[in-house]
């Protein structure tokens, strides 16, 4: 915004006390760059340590992002399938979503009425990926999701199961980041699986079973074990009762 407006000199003094321009605002309060209408939470730069270490422990930086405060709801997903008919249940390509796609919806355009503001589930990775793209966003990577919602100290609590579905990082405790008791898709959900899938069903990393205690960064983080184990059992076309998603985008 151009402040060098031609005004009478008398008023210039008054204008001199105007607040800084919007661009300068964003530089000092980065959180404002995330959209409150889209219910995003600003996640500052952070770190991620892969739960299963390779040769040595590594800590990776995670860039700041605008992460959806809550998983995508049935209502939001309904809008998406209205505008993207290829994702309606009766028309979906089977290779992109298995038979139980939107199994709890009454029909193509009728989610369960009592769950409109609840997370959408029975959606595949392909569907989630497409949804996020339609919003100008993407699925979070495992590193990003874990940085935001995989808090380890809480996981050492006595009942890991409640924590397995997420616990906000300490610096996000006061944000409206919500975890809704479902698993969530990530962009690279099978990154923990080293050897990839093979038709002989020998594809999962053998050390994910009994040997995993050695390779895990923290063998008392049972919540993380559950999360990583669950991710490694997924295929991109799976549509499960307690698996939903949220989107993220880089903070501008």
């Amino acid at each position: 915004m151009n402040r060098h407006v031609a005004v009478p000199g008398l008023l210039l003094g008054a204008f001199a006390s105007l607040p800084l321009s919007r661009a300068e605002n964003a530089a000092t309060t980065p959180a404002a760059a995330c959209s409150t209408e889209r219910h995003e939470v600003f996640v500052p730069a952070g770190r991620y340590e892969p739960f299963y270490k390779r040769a040595e422990r590594r800590v990776m930086p995670v860039a700041p992002m605008c992460l959806a405060a809550a998983p995508v709801t049935n209502a939001q997903y309904l809008e998406f399938v209205r505008g993207h008919p290829q994702w309606r249940r009766s028309r979906v390509t089977r290779v992109f979503a298995e038979e139980t796609y939107l199994a709890n919806w009454r029909d193509d355009l009728t989610p369960p009425p009592e769950s409109l503001s609840e997370p959408v589930t029975f959606v595949s990775w392909f569907a989630a990926d497409d949804y996020c793209e339609s919003q100008g966003a993407r699925l979070p990577k495992v590193s990003e999701w874990e940085r935001a919602a995989g808090r380890q100290a809480a996981a050492r609590a006595s009942t890991p199961f409640a924590m397995a579905m997420g616990s906000p990082a300490a610096d996000l405790e006061r944000t409206p980041l919500q975890l809704k008791g479902i698993w969530e898709w990530t962009e690279d959900f099978n990154s923990a699986v080293v050897s990839g899938r093979a038709s002989g069903a020998q594809g999962t990393d053998p050390s994910l079973f009994c040997g995993d205690g050695f390779r895990a960064v923290d063998a008392s983080d049972y919540a993380a074990f559950l999360r990583y184990s669950f991710r490694s059992s997924l295929h991109a076309d799976f549509t499960l009762k307690n698996l939903g998603f949220r989107c993220t985008r880089e903070a501008p």
Binding site: T100, A201, Q202, G203, T204, P206, F209, C210, F230, S232, S233, L234, H235, F238, L240, K241, N242
Partner: peptide
């Protein structure tokens, strides 16, 4: 059989 049988819910 652990690897061969590892399976997600609904499968």
């Amino acid at each position: 059989g652990g690897e061969a049988s590892f399976v997600a819910p609904g499968h």
